[in-house]
Structures are given as C-alpha cells and as structure tokens.
Design a protein around this nucleic acid. Structure first.
Length: 830
RNA sequence: GCGGAAGUGGCGGAAUUGGCAGACGCGCAGGACUUAGGAUCCUGUGGCCGAGAGGCCGUGGGGGUUCAACUCCCUCCUUCCGCACCA
C-alpha cells in the first residue's frame, strides 16, 4: 500500500500545473471574469505562516472560482522598494537591489512550494525600471493637472544622522539610532499629491462599496477623511486696521462665548501682530521653543497645552466685544484656517486652556434638560447642543436653529460664510531615500521647475550610491545623476534627488498586472475594461486607511485621465486576521515565527494550508498550535487511505450517474450525507468564507464513510464513485495537491485544476426521516424519529404519546402548542 | 476621550441567523492491534447530583422581551484593535 507522501505528490502536481499552464488567464469577452488579488507583499527575508494565511485564503477563493467556471486572473508581484533594503545595505554592505531580488527569489520559491495558483506571466516588481517609469509617467500627468505640487513641509530631522527620519523611525521623540537625541522639526521643500481635491468623492464613493467592504474599514476611511460642516468667520484685529484673522468653527452658535482667538505657532500673521507689541521679546522666545516640537502625532496629542498672549485683540463681529489674541501649541496650522476662537464653556480643549491661563469662561449654551450651568458649578466644558443664552438677538434659540441663522447672517454681514472642511490632508510623497522611484523633475536656474519629458523616462536610479543613512538624500551624492541639462533651455540643471513614497508603487499595481509588459502605456485600457475592477481584494487590516485610500485616489485620477472607467478599484475587500504565536502576531523581530518552508517540509503544503483555514474563521486572529496541525495532517492521511482503499472498485467500473437509483438504505444514507455536506460547503464558500466549518463537515463525512464501511461488501461502484469524487472536489480548493492525486487515483486523466464544482442534488440531500424534539414548557422531554414532512397534528399526537411527555402533562392543561415542522414541538402547560 | 470588534468546555472553535449549546479538531482518559509505538483504529470526555434511568445548572455579570435567547433589547464589566488637541 502506498503512503501519503506530500513531498512527492506536491512536487508532482506543481510540475503538472506548470506544464498545463493551468493558471494562466487571458481576457475572453465570452466568459465572466473574476479578478482576485492579495495585497502586494513586501519581500522581506523569511516567510512565515502569518504571510501564508493571506495567500492561502486568496488561493482557495481563486481555485473555487475557477471551478465555478469563471475566467480567473490571480496575479502576484513585489512591493520591492523601501527602507529595509537600505538598512540591509548599511548593515551588511549589500546593494539594496541584490538584497531585494534575493528575497523575491526566496518568496517566489515558497509561493511555488505552497502551490498557489498565480499567473506568473504577470509578475511585476516595483523596483524594475519598466514598472517605476509608469510611476513617473503618472506623476507627470498629475503635475500637468496641478495634482502634484511642491511646498515647504515639516519633517523629522535627526541632527546626529543629519537626515530626515520617517515617522516610524522616531521613538519617544528621539532618533531610533540615537535614543538620547531629540528629533527636530525642519521645513523642507517637498512634493505632494493633491488628494484633497477628491476628498468629497472619496467619501461619497464609500457608499457604493460599503456592502462589499468590512464595515470597520469603511468607518475608518470615513473618519480619516473627516468631513465637517461649519463656518468661517472673520475677526478684525483691533490694533491693526485692515488686518483680520479668519477662524473655522463648527459651533458658530457659541460665538458669543468666545474669550480669545488662538493662532497656531506657524500662523503667518504672528510676525505682524508681534511687531511693536509690548510683549514681543517674551513672546518670540516662547514661539521659538514651540516650533521645535516633534511632528509625531502621539507626542502632539499628549503634549501639555501651552500658549502666550500676543498683546493684540480681535473684535467679535457678532458682539463687537474685544478679546485677546493668543498663540498656542494645540492649534494646528494645517486644519481649518490655523486659527480658532476659544469658547471655553463649550469646548473641552478650550476649557482646559482658558482655565490654565485664567481667561473668561462665559456660558452661552444651556442644556435643554437638567440643571442649568452657572460659573460656580461648571467643572468641565458642556459641548452639546442646547439653548442659547447671553447671545444678543439669538438668545433663546436652539443650537440647531442658531447654527443656520448665524451662518447666514455672517454671510449677509460679509464677515463669514458656511464652509465644509476635511481632516484629510494632501499626500506628501517626497522621501529623502535612495531605494525608491526618482521623482521626474529637473530644476533649472532659468526655467525653474521643469518636468522630465516623457521620452526621457524612466529616470533611472543610479547603481553606485553611497548609502550611509547619514546626510541628505543619497542621490544628492551622485554627481552623474544630479547634474543634467534643462530639457527646455539645454542649460545646466540639477535633478530632484528625493524619491517617491513607496505607497505610490502600490497605488496602481493592480492595473499593471493586467498588461505587465506594455512599453507604450502603463496598461492597455481595453484590457482594463475587461478585467477591472478587482472583484475580490484580500489583505491585512493594517492597510485599512492609507493604502486603500491612495489606491482609490489613483483610480479616480486614472479615470479622469481616461484610462479606466471604474470609479472604485476594489469591489469587495476582505481583511484576514493575524496569525499569533504566544499571544502576539508572528514577526521576525519578536522571534515567534513558524517558517513557512519548514511547515511544507515537515507536513506538506496541503496540511499547512488546511490548518490555516481550519483553525479559525479567516477574518479572526488565530493562535498557532503545532498539535492542531497534526490533526489536519491526520485528516489528509485518512482521506488518502480512504480513497486508496476504494479506488480499485471505482476504477473497475465505468459508472454513470444514472446508476445511483435503487441504492440500499446504507448507500442512501451515505449519498444523503455527501450531498448535505456539499450543500453546506458550497454555502460556506459562497457566503461568508467560513472554511473552518466547511472543513469540519467534510471531516464528518470522511469519518462516516470510515465508520460505516458501507462500501466494502458488495459495494456499488456508482455510489463509491459519487461519494469519493464529490469529497475530492470539495477539498480541492483547500488541499489542491492531494485532491489532484486522489482524482487521478479515481481514474481521471488530465487533472482537476479546471474541473467543475459539483452541484448538490436536493433529491439526495433531502432527509427521509427527521428527529423531532418534544419540549414541555421549553424543556426537552423526548426525541422521536419520524418520517419527514409529517403534519403538525400528527407531530403533536406522536409527541403527546411519549411516556416522558405524558407524565409531564398529567393533571395539567395545555395552553399553547408551537410546532416547527421537521424540528420541534413545544407544549406549553399550566 | 472618540470609533470599531469580541467575550461559549482544559484549548482552537461550531450552532445554516430566535428552535436540541458545545459540531469538527486538539488535549486528556480507557481499550484494541503490536516486539514496540510519538503510527493506526475504537470508546469516553461542560459542571454538579445519581449505582442507573434520569435530574438540575450552564454561552462575561445583572435585568428584560418570548412558548423558546449564545442569538433580540437595556445596563454594567473585561479584552483587543484603530484614530487621537481636527476647532
């Protein structure tokens, strides 16, 4: 008897699939397409089972869809630019490209070993000039439309490294390499994508995809875009005629309670306000300190509120009241107008600030129910809507009414207007790094900023670069790269030395897959018309905001450029859970990884795949358990032995399905179980991807075939064939190598990579007999087996006849009878 | 602080969406086969009471709706995740 040897079987079928080109798919207007995609991986060193979960889910879905007859495109590629490659270069003196390509080769080997059904002809790597030239091309198109622009922006700067740090390289406000050196803020000229132009559409577009995306992701995106309606109001500066300050507020109804105007430390008007102010010297010293603080969000959020008065005043346009103008660290320059009106009684932050600096706290909103606020009893801000008081002509109005009326009045008085703002900011794409896409721009003394002409693309990354992690952008140290000619005047010019954020690479790669070798365009719109959008996208929740938002943005830009017609790139999104070991996510740095290749060598890829699907529903985190892996291995072994045992019977007979009639009771029971299993597995695959329960029920089926041995004595080949073939097909998307082997054992030539998913048959699945639970007052008192479809009256009668039930009914009156057909009878007695 | 998700045996989890709680797997216990088994097969396995038939309790806590609640409503607790001075 042959043993189940996954090493032999898996390698055998991987070669067959390759020879058959089983997973290559091309546009075919006559067939319905299905584009399933796992998020572009960063090819880091060793692949562990945390990675494999993502691909296993995607592959299972891809294989299932193929069996359902779809024309499935399932590509794979590499997010090959990025900081880790540069770190490797610094630490080991290896070129980032060599390090990256080495990892890619390793990654690919593991994907192959796990039998993932990718169309490898479509493979791309973002560090390939044939890929990133199109990043540059898209950048230029965006530049032409003012969607790419340059402005000064604040970055983290380590004075010891003399370089810019990414946010994640800032640890506790200090450089990750120099933990005693506080990070400084610096302003550099940087490139931005004007994603805010699409803010409204990125928000409304969520409604269209909401049904196909996890709700939490939609919510996170919505919050990130952060639309808020309010008003912009102008306050004149009392001491400087003709000067004014605009604030943004969502609560114009509280404006009579404003006790100060507060500016962000980098507000442009500060210099003018301070010129000639009595408190100038002290104020400038404070300002200097404030401007040094870190850029990191957490640090900003937890910092204590500090501020100082400018000595100037603003005039409240509604009340005519003069209030002081302050500067404080908690006001953000890049949200709203960079200035706020502080209404301490009705805003928590303002309350904290004004309490600290002993500013007035006038109450202008009273709760619509509950005790009224008084200066004596107010311990914290009251930020809710309510009824206006001390608000001149608006006193007595409800907030909701006042908001609209005061906004309209501000507009009439020409000192304000209704306005909508977004929390979303433009996307800064400049990185002072080597291993990324060069930004295709040239600076000429005469012509200024000059885009690189299309026919000079790609702007290639130079090979020989000193990467030290110190100093400015590495490319600035390569004179052959920097020094060039101005495309306009031909005079001497220098190239931009920053590279693009790697999120640019992953913002449109799903379109390049559709036409990966096109040398004329990023992709052929005709091909995109067939394949795009992605039907099912699969990846980690970590990318819920940025990557997905950027990809949506790019899709809209490319649509407006006329390259695609879809509004959204991903119709459905699935976020798989993490793989934990010892309670924390598997990661190399934590040292708790289960190496994917080790898994394949010890148990085989099919066992690894099956366990990943079996241990938990795919959207939930799962804890890795080696012992449970053994369980899956045992199951596949059992299945192998089962088919091996009966395969000769099946093969000896060229059975046709028509011979299933007239089966014995035992055979009928088995056919029933098989078709019920198929019904349930199909349901799990179609609806919610609960592969764990699909596998469980197939295990039950296999157990039943084993236990009852209905096929041994005088077994009917037609029944054996039906049962074993369906079982094999059901596990095929999950354990594809073994399924192929079983399929061959059962007498099929040519493999099942393109076999059809079977249709369950109701006439086999239907139960002839059902177990009915008989309850008295909701408690189970008996179970009876009856013919299916029995009438309610018959069920009640049979139930009452049960001795245990009769006993309970003795001396009591039945007040209500509930019958659930084929399931349950509940007799309510008193 | 705001937003989201989740709490079921010793463990991972199931319950086709209001109808038998604990499927399936792991672990554990007992047995069979074996020179041997960490292979394979069989049996048992939520808690308490009982020799047994059987009974009672049980899905984070408390309350409610219902003939019937892991499932729906209210409330509290715990854990995880995301955002975080957004005016």
């Amino acid at each position: 008897m042959a043993e189940y040897d996954p090493q032999v079987i898996e390698s055998k079928w991987q070669k067959v699939w390759e020879r058959q080109k089983a997973f290559e798919a091309d546009a075919d207007p006559d067939r319905e397409k299905y584009y399933v995609l796992e998020m572009l991986p960063y090819p880091s060193g060793t692949l562990h089972m945390g990675h494999m979960r993502n691909y296993t889910i995607g592959d299972t879905v891809a294989r299932y869809r193929r069996m359902r007859g779809y024309n499935v495109v399932h590509p794979m590629g590499w997010d090959a630019f990025g900081l880790p490659a540069e770190n490797a270069a610094i630490q080991r003196g290896i070129h980032p490209r060599d390090w990256t390509l080495g990892n890619v080769a390793e990654f690919k080997k593991v994907c192959y070993r796990f039998g993932f059904s990718y169309d490898w002809r479509r493979e791309i790597a973002s560090c390939d000039p044939e890929y990133y030239r199109w990043n540059q091309w898209i950048f230029l198109r965006m530049f032409e439309r003012d969607l790419a622009y340059r402005k000064k922006s604040r970055v983290n700067w380590c004075p010891k490294c003399a370089t810019v740090l990414a946010n994640e390289q800032v640890v506790n406000g200090c450089c990750w390499r120099h933990e005693d050196t506080p990070v400084e803020a610096r302003d550099l000229d940087q490139w931005f994508f004007r994603i805010t132009r699409y803010a409204e559409e990125l928000l409304t577009g969520l409604d269209a995809i909401a049904g196909g995306w996890p709700e939490r992701v939609v919510t996170m995106q919505r919050n990130w875009i952060g639309k808020s309606r309010g008003a912009r109001v102008r306050f004149d500066v009392a001491e400087l005629s003709g000067k004014s300050i605009e604030v943004f507020t969502t609560r114009i109804d509280t404006i009579f309670g404003a006790s100060a105007i507060v500016l962000a430390p980098s507000h442009p008007l500060i210099a003018e306000l301070l010129a000639g102010s009595p408190s100038r010297a002290e104020a400038e010293a404070q300002l200097g300190r404030m401007r040094q603080t870190s850029v990191k969000a957490e640090d900003v959020a937890t910092a204590e509120k500090i501020g100082f008065p400018t000595g100037r005043h603003a005039v409240n346009p509604f009340s005519g009241e003069k209030i002081p103008i302050w500067v404080a660290n908690f006001v953000l320059m890049d949200y709203g107008t960079g200035a706020i009106m502080a209404v301490p009684a009705h805003d928590e932050r303002d309350f904290e600030f004004c309490t600290k600096y002993k500013l007035n706290i006038p109450i202008v909103i009273q709760p619509s129910d509950g005790p009224p606020l008084t200066p004596g009893n107010q311990k914290k801000a009251f930020p809710e809507h309510g009824k206006l008081v001390n608000s001149g002509p608006y006193s007595g109005l409800a907030s909701e009414v006042a908001l609209a009326r005061m906004s309209a009045d501000a507009e009439k008085g020409k000192f304000g207007r209704g306005e909508t703002t977004f929390r979303l900011r433009d996307w800064g794409i400049s990185r002072q790094r080597y291993w990324g896409t060069p930004i295709p721009v040239i600076y000429c003394e005469k012509d200024g900023v000059v885009p690189v002409p299309d026919d000079q693309l790609p702007v290639r990354l130079p090979e020989k670069v000193a990467i030290t992690g110190m100093g400015q952008s590495p490319l600035a140290g390569v004179p052959e790269f920097v020094n060039t000619k101005c495309p306009k005047c031909g005079g001497p010019a220098r190239r931009e030395t920053d590279t693009m954020d790697t999120f640019v690479d992953s913002s449109w790669y799903y379109l390049r897959y559709l036409d990966p070798h096109n040398e004329q365009k990023p992709f052929d719109p005709a091909k995109a018309r067939y394949w795009f959008p992605v039907d099912q996208y699969i990846g980690g929740i970590v990318h819920a905001i940025l990557h997905l938002l950027y990809a949506r943005f790019f899709t809209k830009v490319l649509r407006d450029l006329g390259h695609v017609s879809a509004d959204e790139p991903f119709t459905r999104l699935f976020c798989q859970g993490l793989v934990l070991k010892g309670g924390t996510a598997m990661s190399k740095s934590k040292g708790n990884v289960v190496v994917a290749m080790d898994m394949a060598v010890k148990y085989g890829a099919d066992t690894g795949r099956l366990y990943t699907l079996f241990a938990a529903p795919p959207e939930k985190d799962m804890e890795w358990s080696e012992q449970s892996v053994e369980g899956c291995s045992r199951f596949l072994n059992r299945l192998f032995r089962l088919v091996e045992r009966y395969a000769p019977i099946v093969r000896s007979h060229a059975a046709s399905a028509g011979e299933l009639g007239g089966a014995s009771e035992k055979e009928k029971a088995l056919l029933r179980k098989t078709h019920q299993t198929l019904r349930r597995v199909t349901y799990d695959f179609e609806s919610r991807w609960h592969f764990n329960s699909a596998i469980a029920i197939v295990m039950e089926l296999v157990n039943e075939i084993h236990a009852q041995e209905p096929l041994t004595e005088g077994a009917r080949p037609a029944v054996a064939k039906e049962v074993l073939e369906l079982t094999t097909l059901m596990v095929a998307p999950m354990a594809p190598h073994l399924a192929e082997e079983l399929w061959e054992m059962l007498g099929h030539a040519g493999g099942l990579a393109r076999a059809s998913w079977p249709q369950y048959r109701e006439e086999f699945a239907a139960e002839e007999e059902v177990e009915i639970v008989i309850q008295v007052n909701g408690r189970v008192r008996a179970r009876i087996v009856v013919q299916a479809g029995l009438s309610q009256d018959d069920l009640v009668a049979s139930g009452k006849a049960e001795p245990r039930v009769a006993e309970e009914l003795k001396g009591k009156a039945i007040v209500k009878i509930i019958v659930v057909p084929d399931k349950l009878v509940n007799l309510v007695v008193r």
